[in-house]
């Protein structure tokens, strides 16, 4: 559900990213087939890659854990997302892995970093946009 919400939110800023010449890419924890299905269903407007081993998630220091997915705060955010019309589908990928968002490059520049401390606690997209489009 949170992945769907995130895709919907990113769709709103993709035009501004395009205008600034900034690419949008996602990494998921499922298989390429699951990623294809997700992209087709929810129209993710960027490039998609997969990391089923979670080694890249780990290298970026992203959180993982049962309570980070099903803790009260996450459940509350889930209910809030449901009021926006998002629904939980079947799980495809690692259910306990948390996400994050980074603005990177070119080269070794790290311009923005956000590691979701728990499910649904995503980056502020205004801050993302500011970092991504800064000269």
């Amino acid at each position: 559900m949170f992945a769907r919400q995130q895709v919907a939110d990113l769709t709103e800023i993709v035009a501004e990213l395009d205008e600034a010449g900034v690419a949008l890419a996602a990494i998921g924890s499922g298989t390429p087939e699951q990623a294809r299905e997700f992209m087709a269903k929810f129209k993710f407007p960027g490039e998609m890659y997969v990391d089923p081993s979670l080694s890249v998630y780990k290298a970026f220091g992203l959180e993982r854990g049962f309570w980070k997915t099903l803790g009260p705060a996450s459940v509350g955010r889930g209910l809030k997302a449901m009021t926006r019309g998002f629904r939980q589908g079947g799980s495809a990928g690692d259910l306990w892995q948390q996400g994050g968002l980074f603005v990177l490059g070119p080269g070794q520049q790290l311009l923005f970093q956000h590691r979701n401390p728990a499910a649904g606690k995503q980056a502020d997209l205004n801050a993302v946009l500011a970092a991504a489009t800064a000269p």
Binding site: L62, L101, L104
Partner: peptide, 25 residues
């Protein structure tokens, strides 16, 4: 999506990218 491996660093080596790590699909 064709299951071909590529260096993750190649995603931002020559360009700026917003890289999103999704939870699960």
């Amino acid at each position: 999506l064709d299951n071909e491996a590529l260096a993750v660093a190649s995603l931002w080596e020559e360009r700026r990218v917003v890289l999103v790590f999704l939870r699960h699909y």
